[in-house]
Simulated assay, not measured.
Amino acid sequence: MKSKFIDSHAHLDDERFNEDREKLINELSGNGIEMILNPGADLNTSKAAVSLAEKYSIIYAAVGCHPHDSKYMNDETMNIFRELAKSKKVIAIGEIGLDYFYDNSDRIVQSKWFREQIRLAKELDLPYIVHDRDAHEDVFKIMKEEHYDGTRGILHCYSSSVEMAREFIKLGFYISLGGPVTFKKAKTAKLVAKEIPLDKLLIETDSPYLTPEPFRGKRNEPNYVKYVAAEIANIKNISVDMVAEKTNENFKRLFCL
């Protein structure tokens, strides 16, 4: 039986899909893609994610504000996220977190809205999806301080150490690996893939970004999640079918699907 895969993070609302979005989505099931989670990055993309999820059975949505755009956040935006989350196809808050690589928003502002959106996840009893770039210690500190019974979610496109991954897992989170694990020089990602148990891993594309080998440099898409699975299978010396089966189970367990 041909494996089915779940892409736990893809931005199909991105403008790079404008020309062929419908065709691409309609072909996904036939190409072995079972489900996709499309997170929001700001108010407009959150609305777009919900619209896509309500149109296509294969897609689920998350709503939230990426740290890049946290400078535009306010209480009204939070209320809109709260309303959007009433859709049955919204299964998480995200993507939220900290980004110290670009610093597009002030770090204090990023931290404020990261905390506020974690509290929204708690209020709505939803998992949350974390973006962490060059901010590992502060992300962990905030997540630990905001921890509550029922905390759960995903460290998306994980880029920190094995040791830190284990600490995030203790907080109730899954570690999601994407295209970078296929890169030859991605020693840390490959070590995480090797050392973290399969029952704590998810796979993703982060489409249209971070395209895996052998398509690096081209637009990424959910069909390529199988290359992430294949690399993890190679590293762990197990079958691709096993990676697909277990990461699918993890996803469905996390989101009660």
Rank of each mutant, 00 (worst) to 15 (best):
K226Y: 03
A49R: 05
E83R: 02
L37I: 10
T182F: 10
E146R: 12
N38W: 13
D206H: 06
L12Y: 10
E146F: 09
V240D: 01
L120N: 03
E15Q: 14
P214S: 04
L84W: 06
I108M: 02
G217T: 08
A61M: 07
L155Y: 00
E19F: 12
S111N: 01
V63P: 02
L257H: 13
L12R: 07
L257M: 13
D20K: 03
G32T: 06
G217F: 07
S160T: 14
R107L: 04
G179P: 00
T205I: 03
L198S: 03
F5L: 10
D241T: 13
P222S: 13
T205H: 01
G32I: 05
S161H: 02
R216I: 08
T188S: 15
D125P: 00
Y174Q: 13
E27M: 11
S8P: 04
L37K: 08
T188K: 15
A189K: 11
D42T: 05
F5R: 06
D7E: 12
F140L: 15
G97P: 09
T205M: 06
K88H: 03
A10R: 01
T211M: 13
C157K: 04
S57A: 09
G178N: 00
I232L: 03
G179W: 02
N234M: 05
P214Q: 06
K4F: 12
I203A: 07
A85S: 15
T247R: 04
Y227A: 10
Y227D: 05
A189M: 13
M242R: 14
I80F: 13
R107D: 02
K194N: 14
E146Q: 14
M1T: 11
N79Y: 10
V139P: 01
W113N: 00
L198M: 03
A165C: 03
A193L: 05
P67Q: 15
I58K: 10
E123P: 01
L171Q: 04
F101M: 11
N18H: 07
A135N: 10
G217N: 08
A62S: 14
N18E: 14
K122G: 01
G40F: 00
K55V: 05
S29E: 12
E137Y: 02
V181D: 00
R21W: 03
E116K: 12
Y100S: 06
T211E: 09
V50M: 08
S46N: 10
E204Q: 07
D149W: 05
A121N: 02
N79L: 14
L177R: 06
I33R: 08
L155W: 04
M242H: 15
Y60F: 15
N44Q: 15
D69Y: 14
E83H: 07
E137G: 02
V228T: 03
A193C: 11
